[in-house]
């Protein structure tokens, strides 16, 4: 029963990356909230202000990395939650595929939006 498992590396890396992204996200999410709710008031956000921030390459790349790590951390978390419920076999592979696709679309759309914001597109 407990003896035959699939390849071992995946679980290890997923666990490790979940933690590494967490460390980054603690800082990034905190920064994001402070900047857009306390430093800049959310109600006063306009495209101009957004563009001014996104024009700085440092801020732009931070936001893109933020998006990628958040997407991984969140979607991997959802996947873990579903495995907790005993998801396995074909069902599990289908769910993994759907979640990966959702993540890729999210990052793709997010990057597309970000490129609009810094005036590249």
């Amino acid at each position: 029963m407990a003896e035959h498992y699939s390849s071992f590396q995946r679980g290890t890396w997923r666990w490790l990356f979940q933690r590494l992204t967490a460390v980054f996200l603690v800082g990034a999410l905190g920064f994001h909230f402070v900047l857009l709710h306390f430093v800049n008031h959310a109600a006063e956000i306009s495209f101009m202000g957004t563009q001014a921030r996104m024009d700085q390459i440092g801020y732009f790349s931070l936001m893109v990395v933020f998006l990628v790590t958040a997407a991984f951390h969140g979607i991997n978390g959802v996947y873990n939650a579903l495995i907790n419920q005993g998801l396995k076999g074909t069902q599990r592979r289908v769910v993994a595929g759907v979640l990966t696709l959702a993540g890729v679309l999210l990052v793709g759309q997010g990057t597309y939006v970000a490129l609009h914001m810094n005036g590249f597109l």
Binding site: A2, Y5, S6, F8, R10, G11, N84
Partner: peptide, 14 residues
């Protein structure tokens, strides 16, 4: 370690 680091080994601990 190879036994306990399987998918249903230590990683399932929350």
């Amino acid at each position: 370690l190879r036994i306990i680091e399987q998918e249903h080994g230590v990683w399932r601990c929350q």
